Simulated assay, not measured.
Amino acid sequence: MHKEVVYQSTNTYDTLNKLTEKTKTVWLVFHGIGYLSRYFIRLFQSLDPEENYIIAPQAPAKYYKNNDYKRVGASWLTKENTKTETKNILNYIDAVVEMEKIPSHTKFVVLGYSQGVSIASRWIASRRIQPAGLVMISGGFPKELQKEHFSFLSGTTKVTHILGENDPYFEIEKVNAEKIRVKNILPQIEFRTHRGGHELNIETLTDII
């Protein structure tokens, strides 16, 4: 018999810089598969530390990345028990945001990179979040999300999708088809590219909101 149990769990997350009265933008950033949040958050070190505060949740599923059992990576979701795991992760993100007590005077930006796109978009849709910006980088948009899941978004939310021109994980035909689908769901979306591959290029974020 396949059974289920409910229990309390503890997870970590990382932050970069200090949240003060001078902070202008708070970033909630979701790493891709294979990352740990404490390494992923370093990609944002070039942003002005006085004006930007970064929160990086940690995917709960850890694994060894190669056969020497030294490097550890993490994954948000797999095809196994996805519905329950998604619920657990979204509850965890709620707890992180509640813990941080993001002040109202700041702009709130949600960013997902690679696999993190699926978490960022699902959290916004399920919790009806109104961020100043939603940034999706080198990741696929969840198949189950439709236009009605984002009907609550105001016109002030800036939505941006960024993809490397040399990203080996995407074929141009599939990319173009996905653009049409996502544009129908999020009409305000802006598509950007950079000359790199499957990576987060911090320079593309300088005028994101």
Rank of each mutant, 00 (worst) to 15 (best):
S37W: 15
L28W: 01
S75C: 13
L28P: 11
L36N: 01
G34P: 13
K62Y: 09
K65H: 06
Q58L: 04
Y39Q: 12
S46G: 09
V72I: 15
E21Y: 14
L28E: 02
T23H: 11
F44P: 04
K24C: 06
K79S: 15
F40T: 02
H31E: 05
R71Y: 05
W27N: 10
I33G: 15
D48V: 00
Y63R: 00
K70H: 03
T23W: 10
F30H: 11
N66G: 07
N67P: 01
T25I: 03
Y64H: 11
H31D: 06
T25C: 02
N66Y: 12
F40L: 06
T25Q: 09
I54D: 01
I55F: 03
Y39C: 00
P49C: 14
I41C: 07
Y39V: 05
V26C: 12
N67T: 10
I55G: 12
T78L: 07
F40Y: 13
E50I: 04
F30N: 00
D48R: 08
F30K: 01
R42W: 05
P57N: 08
L36V: 00
D68S: 12
K70N: 01
D48Q: 07
Y69M: 14
F30M: 10
N81V: 07
A56Q: 04
T78E: 05
Y64A: 10
G73H: 06
E21N: 15
L77S: 03
V29L: 08
H31S: 13
G73N: 01
K62M: 05
A74P: 02
F44D: 03
Q45T: 10
L47C: 06
I33D: 14
I55N: 09
P60C: 08
K24W: 00
L47H: 06
K24R: 15
Y53D: 09
R71E: 13
L28D: 07
S46W: 07
I54E: 03
Q45E: 14
N66V: 04
W76Q: 00
N66I: 04
G34A: 06
H31W: 13
L43A: 10
E51A: 05
G73M: 10
A74N: 08
Y35W: 15
A59C: 02
R38K: 14
P49Y: 08
I33C: 12
F44A: 02
D68Q: 14
G32R: 09
I54K: 02
G34W: 15
D68V: 05
D48E: 06
D68K: 11
V29N: 00
P49V: 05
A74F: 08
A59M: 05
N67Y: 12
H31Y: 13
